[in-house]
């Protein structure tokens, strides 16, 4: 009897150790993967980054490549997207948490938002091209690209704002109503200030997504490398960093430049992630105090 028992125990022990080891190995593998990507890209990219690359535009006369226009285009598109997506996303979130009483409407809106976040970016690019570039006659332009990204990022901003609106205590609203404030006044003075952390989180997440987006911009914002001001830039075609990485790597074989851009994107992604983490932690702490 005793031997049978210890046999079962040994079997059990081996199984437990094995499973635990498998879990640990998988996690270690994931980490190693991230580390490899980070080190490889930085090692290949950083030596190719030069002041000249960052501050000049591409010259077909001398054949020199500069990515200043691409950096600016990325900034323009981020700014333009946020300008449009913030009011839309915050407004939608306010409607859902403050106004909507009909459960069915809420369900439909939330289902629509989930659908939007599941649609692949290449489809956004296609519809953006058909609707903004052709139907609304914007041509291939940064503005058309930005508007396409507005649709893509709307669910993100909406969701983060909604989350933080839910944390505004009901008693604040009741207090304001009790003092005789109208609904709009309550929203403006009590509810909206309370959701600022959600809006900021939504902004950070959107910036991260826009930085990495390429498929949706290929046919809406185009490939041009011209150096423009903000408003002039919005009206004309332009490649963002990701799109120009693709063009340099896949179509022109300029791998040095491609890796330099990849390294820049990697550092920016790292920064965005850190920022999101810090902001998230700070807001959590603040909520706990309240």
């Amino acid at each position: 009897m005793k031997t049978v028992n210890s046999k079962i125990n040994a079997k059990r022990k081996i199984k437990v150790v094995l499973l635990r080891a498998l879990c640990g190995i998988s996690a270690a593998f994931t980490c190693a993967l991230v580390l490899f990507l980070l080190v490889y890209i930085l090692a290949k990219g950083v030596p190719n980054i030069s002041w000249e690359l960052l501050t000049t535009k591409r010259s077909y006369l001398t054949g020199k490549i500069g990515i200043l226009p691409d950096i600016l285009n990325t900034v323009y598109i981020i700014v333009a997207t946020l300008i449009f997506v913030l009011p839309l996303g915050v407004g939608a979130a306010v409607y859902l948490t403050e106004y909507a009483k009909n459960k069915r409407i809420v369900a439909v809106i939330e289902y629509a938002a989930e659908t939007l976040s599941g649609i692949p970016s290449i489809i956004y690019g296609l519809v953006g091209m058909l609707f903004f570039c052709q139907f609304l006659n914007m041509q291939t332009s940064l503005l058309a690209g930005a508007l396409t990204l507005v649709i893509m990022n709307l669910p993100t901003v909406m969701r983060t704002t909604q989350e933080s609106l839910k944390t505004v205590p009901q008693s604040y609203r009741e207090g304001a109503f009790g003092l005789g404030a109208g609904k709009w006044r309550v929203i403006r003075t009590v509810v909206l200030p309370g959701c600022i952390d959600g809006v900021i989180t939504g902004c950070i997440l959107s910036v991260g997504r826009i930085l990495g987006e390429s498929a949706a911009l290929l046919f809406t914002a185009g490939f041009a490398h011209a150096l423009n001001g903000f408003f002039e830039g919005l009206g004309s075609a332009g490649a963002t960093l990701t799109v120009s990485l693709y063009v340099y790597a896949k179509e022109q074989g300029e791998f040095g430049v491609a890796f330099a851009i990849a390294a820049i994107l990697m550092v920016l992604t790292l920064l965005v992630n850190l920022l999101a983490m810090l902001v998230g932690r700070r807001f959590k702490r603040r909520q706990n105090y309240e």
């Binding site: 990495g212 390429s214 799109v243």
Partner: peptide, 25 residues
């Protein structure tokens, strides 16, 4: 905390960067 950070970095890496590393490695 460390591994979660790594995972969210993995999520944030642009797809063209994956493509580039795939092409080269």
């Amino acid at each position: 905390t460390v591994v979660s950070g790594a995972v969210s970095l993995l999520a944030g890496i642009p797809s063209v960067v994956y493509g580039l590393v795939g092409m080269m490695v």
